[in-house]
């Protein structure tokens, strides 16, 4: 590419307009985060008298502490922290299992070279489009029959099963793109399918495991609907407790505490997003441009 000199470009009005638009957009995208963070550091008096965009006069983390350990949702006043522990308890095994299931199933479908495998892949892919709300009722009856409804294993399992279409698709495409020689070499030595998968393919898929893991973590952590329906009160994830806390109508509405609770809920996935940027983007792109 031949490029015009930097100085020439800096004076170009089109170039200036481009940056103005990009910066304005950045402000639009950052607005919610900025407002929520700023006001979580202010007292209610300050919020009432000032503007949402004003800097806190004397920033305090008091409301973060209240949001964490003593804010009320419903009858309980234990803050958002039980939700954090529930979300960790749900997300860690669910992400681990769902990545493993996706890798295993994706590899199996990439190695089973019959037309039936393609048809099964298509049927699984359709699952990506089905809104959970449409299959909720029978799934609940099914889970209740198995004694899993409203239980901790139940919510983990439902995340794993509902994640199968997405994780399988990503891994199948990944494994279909690897050279067949790897599998063949293992088979010639008499390795079984599971041995080939565990000893040869899994170690080769570390990048993809991270990509899918990051996306599944984000998805499971951020889920509200399944947690609300399936987890039961005791295991309610952070998103559900956050929504309860904000909608708690008893007493004075403390927006600062609500905003602090919102940040605490957002932090884990935001951190994962910031630390894993490239993997997150790869997962989004791979999930989006399917096939």
């Amino acid at each position: 590419m031949t490029r015009t000199s930097d100085r020439e470009r800096r004076r170009d009005p089109a170039r200036i307009a481009l940056y103005v638009f990009l910066l304005a957009s950045a402000a639009f995208f950052l607005l919610p985060v900025v407002v929520v963070v700023l006001n979580s550091l202010k007292t209610m008096d300050e919020i009432r008298q000032g503007s949402l965009l004003a800097l806190p006069a004397s920033p305090t983390f008091d409301f973060w502490r209240i949001a964490w350990s003593s804010a009320c949702s419903g009858i309980e006043c234990r803050g958002i922290s039980p939700g954090l522990f529930n979300s960790i308890k749900i997300a860690v095994p669910a992400v681990f299992l769902s990545v493993l299931v996706g890798a295993l199933n994706g590899y199996a479908l990439s190695q089973w070279k019959r037309p039936a495998a393609d048809r099964i892949m298509l049927a699984i892919t359709f699952g990506l489009f089905v809104p959970y709300q449409c299959m909720m009722y029978p799934t609940i009856v099914l889970a209740r029959t198995g004694g899993l409804f409203g239980t901790y294993p139940g919510i983990v399992l439902i995340h794993v099963v509902y994640g199968i279409p997405y994780t399988t698709l990503l891994f199948r495409n990944f494994y279909a793109g690897l050279p067949d020689e790897l599998t063949k070499a293992a088979r010639i030595e008499g390795a079984s399918f599971l041995q080939t998968f565990g000893h040869v393919m899994l170690p080769l898929s570390v990048n993809m495991l991270v990509v899918v893991g990051v996306l599944q973590f984000t998805g499971i952590w951020n889920d509200y609907f399944l947690g609300f329906i399936f987890a039961g009160n005791e295991n309610a994830p952070m998103t559900v407790q956050l929504n309860n806390l904000v909608n708690n109508t008893r007493g004075e509405v403390a927006i600062n505490v609500n905003m602090a609770a919102t940040i605490l809920t957002a932090l884990p996935t935001l951190l994962v997003y910031l630390l894993s940027g490239r993997y997150f983007v790869r997962g989004i792109a791979a999930g989006a441009v399917k096939g």
Partner: peptide, 19 residues
């Protein structure tokens, strides 16, 4: 521009409710 995708829709909804 991409960070909203990392946030829960509950958080998106609450933030815009306040804004």
């Amino acid at each position: 521009f991409l960070h909203p995708l990392a946030l829960s829709l509950v958080i998106t909804g609450l933030a815009w409710r306040w804004l």
